[in-house]
Every structure is written in C-alpha cells, then in structure tokens.
Amino acid sequence: MALDFGYGISKPRTIDLDRNEFYKGNAVLGKMPELQSCIGCGSCTATCTAGALTDFNFRRLHTLIRRGEFKGIYDEINKCMLCGKCRLTCPRGINTRGVVQLIKRNMGYLQPE
C-alpha cells in the first residue's frame, strides 16, 4: 500500500495551449461565432441571477471554454437558470443564453469531475 504523506503533487494551474483541445470550444464558436467578439467586460457576470447566489462566473466560464479548459464545466454550467438577463446586458450583442445552451449541448455528455 502506498504511503500517504498527506500531500501530493499539485496539478499545474497553467493553461497549456499546446495540449488543450479546441474542438469543443470550436463546436460552440462554430454555431455562435459572435462569442469570439466578447470583450471581457463582465456585464453578464454582474447581472447573473445564478452568480448572485453561487460562485458561478459566466464570463470566466465561457472564456475558459474558448481556451480549451473544460474541467468542472458540467457542474458549473448547470448552475445557470437560463433566465436570460445576461443577454439583455451584453454590449457586444452576444446571445449569451444561447451560448449556455450550446455549452450544455456540446459538453453535457461530460461526466462531472
């Protein structure tokens, strides 16, 4: 039996774009290229109903997806209540609620980690 010293090698936090796969992010972007015009203003997160009650951060979530980072996405995206408030505020006119649905559709099969 392996000895448990109470610590392990922590997983690197670095986003490694040489390793990350973009195809899932591209599956979202392909159907909604307007997401690429996000300017990171955070209005969607600021107005978000789910974000007011949990640590759900929609801006960060869809940015990570575009970087090919999917860990924990399934649990995260399920916090969204599909209320659509974010879409009313986005200055780039992105159908953010539609983005949530695309993420669910393209990543729903991922098992929660």
Partner: peptide, 12 residues
C-alpha cells in the same frame, strides 16, 4: 497570465 480567467498560460 490569462488575466480574464486568472490563470497562467503558456503556448508555443
């Protein structure tokens, strides 16, 4: 740093 996600980032 990908400051919008708060994570270090590297690539070639």
């Amino acid at each position: 740093e990908d400051t919008l996600t708060g994570r270090p980032l590297r690539m070639s």
